[in-house]
Design a binder for these strands. Structure first.
Lengths: 187, 187, 187, 187
DNA sequence: AATGAATGAGGGTTCATTCAT
DNA sequence: AATGAATGAACCCTCATTCAT
């Protein structure tokens, strides 16, 4: 059996994605997780803190998944494309995580903190990329712009696929990945 | 004096973006719009309907702005880039609209309806684009993928700029627009 | 066309019987009577006064109907039975009136006022009856008891018939009228 | 200490009879029962359900009281008169119950359900009576007519006595009971 | 005389949070 | 650690009444 904290977080995730913050009472989280209301307040300060912790939990899980199978000597376009596939794959295989991240990061409660670190491995990856950009390996674009033009597109497409609005096979994905990374090549 | 319906919609927009659906009581909308609670219910069925109507109002406003200054004989890459700039400009000049659209379309209440039309002019523009894609003028990608790789990026970047995370001047924008449309060229 | 006051009263009657005081807003009375809210407040002080006036209107209408076709030289069992039939007939032919009277007289707002006169003819009828009782023509019972044992039964039966719980033909009614007046005969 | 459900029901009964459904907010029921609003909604689905349950509670209590002290081998006029006295006595000793029952059963929310059983003992009593009527022991009248001519009168008289409009001693009651049951004798 | 938009107090109901057990 | 009954502030919404037109 999983530990209670995780059970609560997963129950919360499911309900938040289905109904939203507004329509998810703590009592419903208790019912969904088959625990009592009291025990939720034992593990989490309050509803807001619970959701904040859920966000960090999922964001970290996602960030870790990005680097799976990426060789240690990071760098090069092939690595970026591997990460891009990792991202897309994670998103479509974890629809609840994806939808929650989008919901949360677009809510007014969310304040982006650029200094926040979710995993040191990833920070390293990002600084290598930053370095490459500065050295003319890629187009000279702010990192966030680079992100929106590549991984950001993966997220958007994954949301479409989750919603069954599109259905991308590996050939199509390959084509898209090529295209987005072509767009950030140095010119 | 503007008509009351508009006053209410604008007050709602401001509060929703600042605080979110949950933290925006109807009483607060009344205070913000200097009207009574009762009159809000005179013009709108209920809070949910009010927000739904706000969404249509803003979505339409945005869609109309996309085609501003675009010549009638639609088509060609220059037109697409003009629309891209229109989108970005609208977004950064209407941050409330932008943030609200993102919040709303990422909420669980929102259900995407592909058949919904916001402006016939825009439908025409889209079908021309669709036609061009099918005839090999652009890369053979589903329309939604095309969208996410182009206008979707404009929205993402605009959100960053609104949050003052980046600051793109016209040169940078030009470069980015070129890049995203390069990525959807036929190969 | 009827005068507006009457139109309002009839609309109110219908709605009160269907929905009750609680679920009958003045705006609904306006809609039902195809008049404006304002004009209702022109003719009636407020909602409570409107309903009170409705009560007097209907109560009087009913009292008048009781004596219809009763010879002037009142008295005698035949007259009582005639009144009894009049009552029953009025009730079943005016179900809204009947249901409203019951609803109103059983509500906590209603205070019975024994001195109130709805029609002088009826007061005369009652005092003759009172006189007969005191002189041993009928059983020596308080007038209200006499009423409950006779006309009160007519009202109860009429309510049953309105609700289609029973269906009394003239033979059955004759039998019942005989029975109730037999029960108040002097012994 | 009584259980909270009963406390709430009794508080509701008192207020409903004094003020009516309309003028009895749930907050007032909470104050009267010295409990919070929330706990009322813990025990009862909503205000309507609370009142419906109150009705069943009281109706059952009354029905049970009708048969108190009635020998098991039911039947015969003496039994009917015993029940009649039980009814009258219950009514005058429980004025709140009486007034509530009348208010509720005359409200538009109330729908009479002939198949509803409040106590199996009472159903038995009724079917015996029905049987007697069919076998000519009493006048051949529909059961509901029989009821209105006997127990119905008890209720009416009790209401008068509660309102202090009349004051019946045991001699008077005996006379009235005799009279009403005389009226339903076989002829 | 007539309209119906406008007000805002007040009602039903929910739910985050606490705490006795 | 664990429960869930209990609290009451705060929400959405209704509606009697007014009043400018």
């Amino acid at each position: 059996m999983q530990d209670k904290e995780t059970i609560i977080l997963e129950a919360t995730l499911k309900l938040l994605v289905e109904r939203g913050f507004y329509a998810t009472p703590v009592s419903e989280i208790a019912r969904q997780s088959k625990l009592s209301v009291g025990i939720i307040y034992h593990y989490f300060e309050n509803k807001e803190a619970l959701i904040r912790q859920l966000y960090f939990h999922i964001k970290k899980r996602f960030i870790m998944a990005l680097l799976a199978g990426v060789p240690d000597h990071l760098g090069g376009l092939e690595v970026l494309k591997k990460v891009w596939f990792n991202a897309f794959t994670y998103y479509v295989e974890h629809p609840l995580d994806t939808l929650f991240l989008e919901q949360y990061e677009n809510s007014p409660y969310f304040i982006f903190n650029p200094d926040e670190s979710f995993a040191p491995e990833f920070d390293l990856f990002v600084s290598k990329l930053q370095h490459d950009i500065e050295n003319g390996v890629y187009a000279n674009l702010p990192l966030l712009v680079f992100y929106d033009m590549t991984l950001g597109v993966a997220m958007s497409l994954a949301k479409r696929q989750i919603a069954k609005m599109i259905e991308l096979d590996s050939v199509a994905l390959e084509k898209i990945a090529d295209a987005v990374y072509r767009s950030v090549q140095a010119v």
